[in-house]
Design a protein around this nucleic acid. Structure first.
Lengths: 111, 111
DNA sequence: GGGTAGGTTCGATGGATGTCAAAGTGTTTC
DNA sequence: GAAACACTTTGACATCCATCGAACCTACCC
């Protein structure tokens, strides 16, 4: 049996809240990992690429979900997370791709 | 005589910092106003649409500039601010448009 | 039932951030 | 030079936020 954790409706997704959710290195890493997978992903698996404690990971997943970026479903004792592509594309076309698409340009040369 | 205030080079613009700069209602309002003007704009004029004290406005302009979003030049006793379209498009294609383009969809219906 | 595994909640803590009043800096004008 | 102007800087304050340890909660397994 699976149940879905509470999340904002498409229309109540707020841009400032959304940007705030993405303006954190850990959350951006999580989002990139999910985005690369392209579909539903195991929470624990995604969180493998990040080095913070379980409570902190849980906190970040909650922030992403409450900002309207992700959907989380509980399946047994594991969580499955999905990026809300359709809702986000409808509200802010192109935004997700612009932020999460791996750029060809590397961060910075030196200094 | 005009001089330019210090700002990060194109290559050292950081995505997390940039998103953090945009994740504030006052700064987003300022950016939208500049974006709508399309070119160099008078700082005071742009700030007219926002209801905070002069020190706070000054603080927000600084955050935007240090994040790499804007260029500020001093001309006499007034400041002129410009969005760094070229640099931002080079580093994060489509991002600015996705965030600042006025959407057809209104915020939310009610609740 | 007992044990384990995956996650969450609670509480505390240190650091970042938005805000303004007061004082300071450089510029134009009279 | 004095006054007015347009900001900025400094200092203080309240709030938010990321983080972790400890305790808790279900779900699965024997």
């Amino acid at each position: 049996m699976t149940r879905q954790l509470p999340q904002p409706s498409r229309d109540s997704i707020n841009l400032v809240t959304l940007l705030g959710a993405l303006a954190d290195p850990v959350r951006l890493t999580l989002m990139r990992a999910m985005y690369a997978r392209g579909g539903p992903a195991d929470c624990a698996e995604v969180a493998g690429g990040v080095e913070v404690s379980p409570p902190t990971v849980s906190h970040h997943y909650r922030v992403l979900r409450e900002a309207g970026l992700t959907t989380t479903t509980v399946e047994g004792r594991r969580r499955v997370v999905t990026i809300r592509h359709d809702d986000l594309e409808a509200r802010f076309p192109g935004l997700l791709a612009a932020i999460l698409t791996p750029s060809l340009v590397e961060p910075a040369p030196s200094g």
